[in-house]
């Protein structure tokens, strides 16, 4: 029972970090058709900015979370304005460019913040572990679950229940018709890109409570979030959430029970979904 509870919590906490990352990639791809492989690098930049603020300069952790998100959001905005909008529907160029950005941002991070790993950090109120019925579990991990779920609800509400969300969904389904209605889809795209990048940076600092910060994060985290996208499906918040939780739990139980096969199970799940439902479990199209 203890194993079951702890493994589920492990799966949820890691899965929700993957969700935050995947949600941003999914939104951006859905609206703009841009496959941004450097999304993991934006996550890393957010994490470093948050670490720099909270640990190096002693600012409030929640301010660091906000600044991490803003830094990644602004960086994403520049990338979108200067590069990505020129590469609409050019998938090969997008992959090459965004993969190049991974290297550039990683090396710039090493330059600015150093190459060594920075241990996880959190708010003073979230430090330590709680003990219930013989179980010990880090409070910070519980906070990751709560924050992830709150953001999931917020993003779902924004996308499915607001006018802005309706425009975003319309843009995903039919760009030309949406524009013919007089909607400035360019502005919507830029805003969505900023939001996606902001969430990546935000997730970087939230995720740093679990995994700390290092220059290798951009690649480490990207691969699994891509699997989350394949499983959950592109263009839907619910899909990214389901994919994140599924992969988080498969990863957590797999590593605990069959560590040498954990990665196999993760990719097996992806292959099964690709074979049975190629657009993902809850993909829009």
């Amino acid at each position: 029972m203890e194993f079951l509870v702890l493994s589920t919590l492990n799966g949820l906490s890691y899965g929700l970090i993957l969700f935050l990352l995947a949600a941003g990639i999914s939104l951006i791809y859905g609206v703009m058709g841009i496959l941004n492989l450097s999304h993991g690098a934006l996550y890393m930049v957010g994490a470093y900015v948050g670490w720099s603020m909270a640990v190096q300069n002693g600012y409030n952790f929640w301010l660091a979370v906000l600044m991490g998100g803003l830094a990644a959001g602004l960086l994403g905005l520049v990338m979108e304005r200067v590069f990505f909008r020129r590469l609409y529907k050019q998938l090969n160029e997008q992959v090459l460019l965004t993969f190049g950005f991974i290297y550039i941002l990683t090396n710039l991070s090493i330059w600015i913040w150093g190459a060594t790993y920075q241990a996880s950090f959190t708010a003073p109120i979230l430090t330590g572990s709680f003990h219930i019925a013989g179980l010990t579990y880090p409070i910070a991990r519980i906070s990751v679950i709560f924050i992830g779920l709150i953001l999931a609800i917020g993003l779902w509400w924004l996308q499915d229940k607001t006018r802005v969300g309706a425009i975003v969904r319309a843009g995903m389904d039919d760009k030309e018709i949406t524009m013919s209605l007089g909607i400035n889809l360019g502005l919507v795209s830029t805003s969505v890109f900023f939001l996606g990048a902001f969430i990546a940076g935000f997730a970087g600092v939230i995720g740093a409570q679990l995994v700390g910060v290092s220059p290798t994060l951009s690649i480490d985290i990207l691969l699994l979030s891509m699997v989350v996208l394949v499983i959950g499906g592109l263009g839907s918040v619910q899909g990214a959430l389901l994919g994140g939780i599924l992969i988080g739990c498969i990863d957590a139980f797999g590593k605990a029970l069959f560590p040498e096969l954990a990665m196999f199970f993760t990719y097996l799940a992806m292959i099964i979904v690709l074979a049975v439902r190629p657009r993902g479990l809850l993909g829009r199209r």
């Binding site: 493994s7 492990n10 906490s13 995994v211 290798t216 990863d251 957590a252 605990a256």
Partner: peptide, 17 residues
């Protein structure tokens, strides 16, 4: 004996087991 893939970010599952 537990073996974690190189690049493992979350050791929670290993610690649980």
């Amino acid at each position: 004996q537990q073996w974690a893939a190189a690049g493992t970010t979350d050791f929670g599952p290993f610690l649980t087991a």
